[in-house]
Each structure stands twice: as structure tokens, then as C-alpha cells.
Design a protein around this nucleic acid. Structure first.
Length: 582
DNA sequence: GCCGTTTTCGGCCCGACTGTTTTCAGTCG
């Protein structure tokens, strides 16, 4: 589990993403040129590199590029050229050959490589601008293979990406999921309803929603589905598969299946696509073929199983893989070797860290928050109101700190759960904290976060954070990337160094469940875990209503392969207190 | 271009829906 040998992890390195993007564009171009099979190869390589948990330059330095799955001699040579010279002659050559903005055109719904090729050849369309003009002049319906309807769809597609809705927050679609589930369940003809897709995998944002229904009357279910309230547009309607778009822009897909197909259909619909592709290949290697209709023998296509997901994985000789792990980041190999982690469940969480009150920028009192925590069945709650320089909303000051701590002691006497005193303190520009070591040691839980001067370059920001760790008064690094989903990018950090320093200085990395933060996310949790780090789950609550956010943090911990031994919140109170001593 | 518990050659995940067709190609998930 632990891999301390190589701390030089550099997640989501710009270099990695650069390489990924070029490999994917090469695949796009080759697809356009109708080169068989190569596009897949480039995409597979790109995907592996995308989920790499270290800087590809490190892999290159060790001369291990060809050990990346999907990277062989030819692609390794291309990556080498790219890393050594910053350019790739093969890529430049391909770009010249096609001379159009393939990436942009592919982003138009219903427009793929084949149509793009025709549009280019017949009308010289190179980008969306050209496309829109041709659509306006109704030039496209005249082309063979195209028609009035296609023209209409492409027009809508172009308009759609102009006002393209962002990805939706998990938290934001949660009530939509419940509403649709409730409505579908209310039908007598529906035997079973489940949500699949990236929502089911617990991703922090989702592009669309996928529902699966068991019913013997599919047509009736479809009629009901496309006439749900709030449907703005019906994108497709068939006997087993339909798609709608809600007025907020969220697309919802529905598939109706038979009971004996339910497991295989769930598996297919939960994805991820990359996981499915690998699983199907794996099935082939075992003499089976897997589709949404079930697991069949390769010869004779005899139905083997498909009623439940568990049966499919078992039949293939694999451990059951929980949806959160299905991202093709090594779960298949682990399942084959029986080495999947035992993921934490909501009942494993004994309490919550990082809660704000009226003492800084929260809406409720210490007592109200503690009582609500008790009501939720928690065993402890940690108060971490803001402490820092100007720029933070209504922070605690040194003057008010003593009365804050005394107030927390009073609250402790009034509730039946453990109440920890603490702060969320700013990490200043130079890596110091705006409060003395002595004062900090009087508190139970010190969370330190970056709030100000967030645009620092990577080396300086890394130094700033690691230096703060080395002062040895910090228990937890708050919202480590400082990102806000769809709003604000991550701060620039060398994650390998940060993880290493956190491990050495016994600083827990926060998994912050505030819906817009969801920080750290799964892939980084996994990388930090491999570097030997431990974590704390945070609500970042500023209101009573925010206390349940730890369930969202839990999603990310699960996606990051974390177990109870890795998460502070799951430990006994005495063990927590010991771990927090500085 | 990659890869191997049928393989170093000959495969490469699978099926629904739609539009333009007159039996299928393209796109999507």
C-alpha cells in the first residue's frame, strides 16, 4: 500500500497534460484520416498518462516510458522528442496535413470525424465560425449524407456550445436525482430504479445523469420520462433508451432493461467508459464477451450472468469493484490480486473537523453547532474559526481568542459529544503563522490554510506551505488546493514535495466536503496515500445545514482508495488526541 | 500503434438511436 520510495509525485503536471493533449489531438487527426486502430492506441496512451501519479519527466528520466500501459516503442519515442525539444515533428506534420481546428469542431454535438471530413472537403469548413456561416446559408442540407434535420441539429449544437452549461456540482444535482428517482419509482410498471453514471461514482461534478429502470413496459416508462416536469427538450426517445434536457441545461438519460440484464446494464451505465473498455477486454481474455445485456461466452454467445454486478465480477475472477474506484487507475489489477481497499462508509465517520461559527464568518453559535453534531449522531466536533490578517472575513483576533476557548469549554459541559477547540489559521506569504507557537499549542486542532496571495509561482508556494509544516504546530492542511469548482483554479504546488513534507511533519491533509471545494479530490488523495500521508474529513461548515457535508468528503476519500486507518475522523478519541499532539 | 493464460501476428468493446437511406453510416455513451 505505502510507497515511500518515490516521493517525486507531481500530480496533474502541466507537462503531463500537455503530452495528453497532443496525443489526443493526434488521435483525432488520425481518426479524421480514417487510419484504422492507431487512434485508439494514442488515446489509450493519453489516458494512462492522464492518470499517472507522477511527473512524466520522472518516468522519462528513469527510462521507463515504455512501462506505461499503452505506450510502446513508437509513442515512447514521440514523448521523448516532445520532452527533449518541446516539439513533436510528427504532430506538426499531421496538423499541416489537415489544416483545420479539429478539437473545436469535435466539440459540436453530433459532429464527428466523418462529417467534419465531408464538410471540409465540400465546403472548406475549418472551424466553428465557418460552420455557423454555412449553416446560416443552408449550404449543408444539400450535401449527400446530410439533410435538413442534420442542419437543424448542427445549428442547435453550435448555439449550445456558445452557451455551454458548466459541469454540475454533485451537491447541486443530488436533489434532482432524488426527485427523478421518486417520480420513476411511483410508477406501478417500474420494478427498480437506480442512478448510474459519474454521479454514482461520486465524482465532484457531473456532466449528465444516467438512470436505469427495470420494467416490462418500456414504452410507457419512456412516455412518462420525456414528459417529466422541467423537461426543456427531448434529445432522443426510443423503446429502451431516451435522453432529455432539463431547463437548467442538465441532460438526463434513461435506459429501460429487463431484470436479468440489470447488473450488466448498471455496470455499463456506471462506467467509467475507460473502466468498461478495460473490463470488456479482460472478459475477452477469459473467453467471455461483456455488454449491457450480460456476460456471454465468446463461442456460441451463451448467457452466463448479468442479474447483478457482483455476479459479473465474480464470474470474471475479480473482487467486486465499488463504483468510486472505476476510473481505470489500477482497480482491475488490484481486484485480480484481491488487493482492493476496504473503503470507508458513512458510519465509520465518528466526527467532523473544520467548523465555523459566529465567532468568525459562520451563521450559528458554538452551542447550536455542537448540538446539531450530537443530533447527527457524531461523537465529536472540532471548531476552527478563522484566524488571520485582514482579508479574511471577520477573523478571530488574539484578543478574542481566550474568550473563544472559554466559550468552547462551556459548550463542552452542555453537550454529550467531545468538543475540540481550534482555529483555521492563515499561512502567511513567508510560510509563518500569525500566532505564537505557545498560543497554538493551547488549542486542540490547528488547521492552516492558504487564503491570500494565491497567485504565487509553484516553487515559492511549495516553500511557503512546506515551511509552515516544519514549524511543527500545524495538525491539518486546510483545503489543500484552494480551488473552487468551475470558479477558481488550484494554487500552484509541487505535490510530491508537499506530500512528503506532510508525511514527515505528521500533518493531515484535509478532504474538504464543501460542495464548491471538494478538495482534495480522489486522484490526489490516492497519490498522497501512496506517498504515506493521512487525511482528515472536513465539512467547512458555516451553517447548521452544512454539517452533513462530511458525506461529500467521504465520496472523495473513497475515490482516493482511503481506508479507516488513513482517516483521522474514523479513529478513537484517544487515538485522535494523541495524533494531534504537537 | 500496442499487445499476449488460445497470439511476436492478427486482432483491437459493444450496442442504441437517428437521419438519410432503401440496408446503413455516423455519433454517442
Amino acid at each position: 500500500m505505502t510507497n515511500h520510495k518515490n516521493p517525486a509525485i507531481f500530480l496533474a503536471s502541466m507537462k503531463n497534460l500537455e503530452v495528453v493533449k497532443i496525443l489526443n489531438t493526434i488521435a483525432d487527426i488520425l481518426e479524421l484520416q480514417e487510419v484504422p486502430f492507431k487512434p485508439q492506441a494514442y488515446r489509450r496512451a493519453a489516458l494512462s498518462i492522464e492518470s499517472l501519479s507522477e511527473d512524466i519527466r520522472e518516468v522519462y528520466r528513469r527510462d521507463e516510458l515504455e512501462e506505461i500501459p499503452g505506450v510502446g516503442k513508437a509513442i515512447a519515442e514521440k514523448i521523448t522528442e516532445l520532452l527533449e525539444t518541446g516539439k513533436l515533428s510528427y504532430y506538426e506534420k499531421l496538423k499541416k496535413e489537415i489544416d483545420l481546428d479539429i478539437e473545436e469542431l469535435l466539440s459540436v454535438p453530433q459532429l464527428g470525424p466523418r462529417k467534419i471530413k465531408v464538410l471540409y472537403k465540400k465546403l472548406g469548413i475549418k472551424n466553428i465560425k465557418n460552420l455557423e456561416k454555412a449553416l446560416e446559408k443552408h449550404k449543408i442540407r444539400a450535401l449527400s449524407g446530410f439533410g435538413e434535420k442534420t442542419e437543424q441539429i448542427l445549428w442547435e449544437g453550435v448555439q449550445f456550445i456558445k452557451t455551454k452549461p458548466r459541469r454540475f456540482l454533485y451537491f447541486q444535482v443530488q436533489p434532482v436525482v432524488e426527485e427523478i428517482r421518486k417520480r420513476l419509482s411511483s410508477l406501478d410498471i417500474v420494478a427498480k430504479v437506480e442512478v448510474a453514471g459519474s454521479f454514482r461514482r461520486g465524482k465532484e461534478t457531473v456532466g449528465d445523469l444516467d438512470f436505469l429502470v427495470v420494467s416490462s413496459k418500456p414504452q410507457q416508462v419512456m412516455n412518462f420520462f420525456v414528459s417529466l416536469p422541467d423537461v426543456k427538450e427531448v434529445l432522443a426517445k426510443g423503446t429502451t433508451k431516451s435522453s432529455i434536457r432539463l431547463s437548467n441545461g442538465l441532460q438526463v438519460d434513461l435506459r429501460v432493461v429487463r431484470a436479468k440484464e440489470f447488473g450488466s446494464a448498471m455496470n455499463y451505465f456506471i462506467g467509467s467508459k475507460e473502466h468498461n473498455v478495460e473490463l470488456r477486454k479482460f472478459a475477452l481474455s477469459k473467453g467471455y464477451t461483456l455488454s449491457e445485456y450480460g456476460l456471454f461466452t465468446l463461442k456460441g454467445k451463451k448467457w452466463i450472468t448479468g442479474r447483478t454486478e457482483q455476479e459479473i465480477y465474480t464470474k470474471l475472477g475479480l473482487q467486486y469493484i465499488p463504483p468510486e474506484l472505476r476510473e481505470n487507475t489500477g482497480e482491475l489489477t488490484a481486484a485480480l490480486e484481491g488487493k482492493l481497499p476496504k473503503l470507508i462508509a458513512v458510519n465509520d465517520v465518528k466526527g467532523v473537523f473544520h467548523n465555523h461559527t459566529v465567532w468568525s464568518d459562520g451563521n450559528n453559535s458554538l452551542l447550536e453547532m455542537a448540538q446539531k453534531g450530537e443530533e447527527l449522531g457524531l461523537k465529536f466536533i472540532s471548531f476552527n474559526d478563522h484566524f488571520g490578517p485582514l482579508g479574511i472575513v471577520h477573523p478571530l483576533t488574539e484578543k478574542r481568542l481566550d474568550s473563544y476557548v472559554r466559550e468552547i469549554e462551556k459548550v463542552q459541559k452542555k453537550v454529550g459529544i467531545k468538543v475540540f477547540s481550534g482555529l483555521e489559521i492563515d499561512i502567511l506569504k513567508d510560510g509563518t503563522l500569525p500566532l505564537s507557537r505557545k498560543k497554538l499549542q493551547e488549542l486542540d486542532v490547528v488547521i492552516a490554510s492558504v487564503h491570500l496571495s494565491t497567485k504565487m509561482a509553484e516553487p515559492e508556494m511549495t516553500k511557503r506551505v512546506c515551511q509552515a509544516f516544519e514549524n511543527n504546530t500545524i495538525n491539518i492542511l486546510g483545503h489543500p488546493t484552494d480551488r473552487l469548482l468551475e470558479e477558481r483554479p488550484e494554487i500552484a504546488l509541487n505535490w510530491g514535495k508537499v506530500f512528503e513534507s506532510a508525511r514527515n511533519n505528521k500533518v493531515f491533509l484535509e478532504i474538504n466536503g464543501s460542495p464548491k471545494r471538494m478538495d482534495l479530490e480522489g486522484l490526489k488523495v490516492k497519490a498522497a496515500l501512496e506517498a504515506g500521508c493521512k487525511f482528515s474529513l472536513a465539512t467547512d461548515a458555516h451553517d447548521l445545514a452544512h454539517l452533513p457535508f462530511y458525506a461529500l468528503a467521504l465520496n472523495m476519500a473513497r475515490r482516493g482508495w482511503a481506508e479507516t486507518k488513513d482517516i483521522l475522523n474514523c479513529w478513537s478519541l484517544s487515538k485522535i488526541e494523541k495524533a494531534l499532539q504537537k
